[in-house]
């Protein structure tokens, strides 16, 4: 069974179909990019997969559990245990240091382990920034803290909604490189992006348009390394 399966999923706001009969399967360990114009329903889909929202209709099976039918309390537990989230805005708690922000995810998951949190920051190359507050970090550094926080509890699936949207090329490369390493470790990745260069790195690309899946392409020569178009 696939790690994630969406069957006939709708999300309807009034008479707007933000998601319109979406079917999608994501295998364990797969790296999928989701593209599409603004307003096509990418974030809506990510929120549903991320257990922060429920579909109006349809089935969303995560590891065999239909999350469309779970209570809000169970969704919190599932999110905590299985999912790592990365957002376009570098959402960090602004009065906690980089290290404490990472530990926060540990705290809600199980018990905070400062050493492990520090190692996660080392992985994203921010060991020397551990004691800094978000305001003392650059955008790229903040997003790397978010990556460290997303991976700290070893989630099965990492959902990133436009993670490089606010980053320059070099930071974008760093973040994509972090994804590649996560992929190598077997983590399932779903990355929403506007940026074709970021989408092309993935194994598979899904294009949404008006809440429907318009196109799917498989990357034949997948390397996991970003190639910039000149």
């Amino acid at each position: 069974m696939s790690l994630l399966e969406l069957h006939n999923v709708y999300k309807i706001y009034g008479d707007l179909h933000a998601l319109d009969n979406v079917d999608l399967k994501v295998e364990r360990g797969e790296w999928v990019a989701i593209m599409g114009p603004s307003g096509s329903g990418k974030s809506t889909m990510m929120n549903i997969i991320g257990c922060m929202d429920k579909p109006t209709k349809g089935e969303v099976l995560l590891d065999g559990i239909d999350i469309a039918k779970e209570s809000a309390k169970n969704l919190t537990t599932i999110r905590r245990d299985k999912i790592g989230l990365i957002f376009q805005q570098f959402h960090l708690v602004n009065y906690l240091t980089a290290l404490e922000n990472v530990m926060l995810a540990q705290y809600y998951h199980s018990i905070p382990d400062e050493k492990e949190a520090y190692e996660a920051l080392e992985k994203v190359g921010l060991a020397d920034r551990a004691k800094h507050l978000p305001s003392q970090l650059s955008g790229g550094e903040q997003q790397r803290v978010c990556v460290a926080r997303a991976l700290i509890n070893h989630p099965e699936i990492i959902l990133a909604d436009e993670p490089t949207g606010n980053l320059d090329d070099s930071n974008e490369e760093t973040v994509v490189e972090l994804f590649r390493r996560l992929h190598e470790d077997g983590t399932t990745l779903i990355v929403v992006t506007h940026d074709p260069e970021v989408a092309e790195v993935a194994q598979r690309m899904v294009v949404l348009r008006n809440g429907k899946i318009a196109r799917e392409t498989v990357n034949e020569n997948f390397t996991g390394h970003i190639r910039f178009h000149v």
Binding site: G50, M52, K73, T76, T77, R79, R80, D81, L85, H91, L92, V93, N94, L104, A105, Y108, H109, R149
Partner: peptide
């Protein structure tokens, strides 16, 4: 609000 939303997103329950 944003921070609360974030905390919830990364797994905080209402209780916490």
């Amino acid at each position: 609000r944003r921070e609360i939303g974030l905390r919830k997103a990364i797994g905080a329950s209402d209780g916490s």
